[in-house]
Simulated assay, not measured.
Amino acid sequence: FSDKGSWCVIQQGMNADNLYARRYHWFSKNLSSFILEPHSAILGSRDNKPVLDMTSRESVETQKMSVDLINDDPRHLQRDLLSLLKPSTQKTLDEFIGQGAEMKIPYLDMPRYINWNKLRKIYEFQPGNYEEFLSLDGVGPATVRALALISDLIYGTKPSWMDPVKYSFAVGGKDGVPFPVDKIAMDETIEILKQGVEEAYIGKREKMMALKRLRKIIPHSYEEKHN
C-alpha cells in the first residue's frame, strides 16, 4: 500500500492434483471492477482446459442470470438443479466413446451437495448484483458452479471456458520448475527486446525510458557479461 492509497496484491494458489501453482496479480491502478477481469495478470506454468472463468467479459450475462436465479424462489432453483443431475443408472456419450478419445465439449463439474439453507438466506437478502452476491457468507465454488450450469444449460447464457492464465517461466525457473533456466535463451530474448527498442521509430527520450525499464528486469549477471 502506498501513501496515496494505491495497492498491489499477489496471491498464490496450488492445484492439489498436479501440484502446479499460479499467481494472481491485483493492481489498484488498473482495477475498475472486482468481478470483471480484475487481475493485472494470472501467471502459471500451464493452462487447464476447460476452466470456468466467471470474471471474463464473456460471462457477464451468466453473472446477471446467476443473480436472477438466486433472487428467485429457491424451490425453482432446486427444481432446475435436480433436472440436470444425471441418474446413476444413466450412461453418457463419453462413456461409449471411451477414455482414449479427446473430449472437446465444455462441461461443469456439478456439485453433489448444495446448502439450501444458505441459499434461502441469500434469497431473503436479495443481492443487487454479482459482486454483492459473491460477498455473502456461504457463497463458494459449488454455488457459483451450480448457478453457472443452470444459467448455461437451461437459460442459454454461456460463460467463458477459456483459462485466463498467462504463461510465465518462458526461459525456466530458478528452482528448476518447470525446468532449469535456459541462460542462452534468456540472453537471446534480452537482445531481441533491446534491438527492438533501439530500432523502433520513436524519439530518443522514449528509447532511453524504454531501455531503462528493460534494464530493471535484466539480471545483473547479463549486464556484467555484456559490459
Rank of each mutant, 00 (worst) to 15 (best):
D80C: 11
L82W: 08
S59K: 03
P127Q: 07
G100P: 01
L77P: 01
L85F: 02
L81W: 15
F133S: 10
T143L: 15
A146D: 04
R213M: 08
L19A: 09
L149P: 00
V139A: 11
P219N: 04
Q195C: 08
E124Q: 14
M14Q: 10
V197H: 04
I114M: 15
R120Y: 06
T55G: 01
G138A: 04
E132I: 11
W161E: 02
Y113S: 09
Y20H: 14
T143K: 09
D47I: 14
Y107R: 13
T143A: 10
A41W: 05
S151T: 10
S2L: 12
I10V: 15
N15P: 00
Y201T: 03
V177Y: 14
D72S: 15
K91D: 09
L52W: 07
Y24Q: 09
G156S: 12
Y222G: 02
I217G: 05
K64E: 12
E131V: 00
F27K: 10
N115Q: 07
L31H: 09
A21M: 09
N227A: 09
S135W: 01
S151W: 07
H39F: 15
Y130W: 13
I42H: 03
S56K: 07
K104N: 14
S28E: 08
I42C: 06
P38L: 12
R213Y: 03
N71C: 14
N18V: 08
E132D: 13
V67M: 05
I122A: 02
E102C: 04
L69E: 02
T62R: 06
M208P: 00
Y24C: 08
K183S: 07
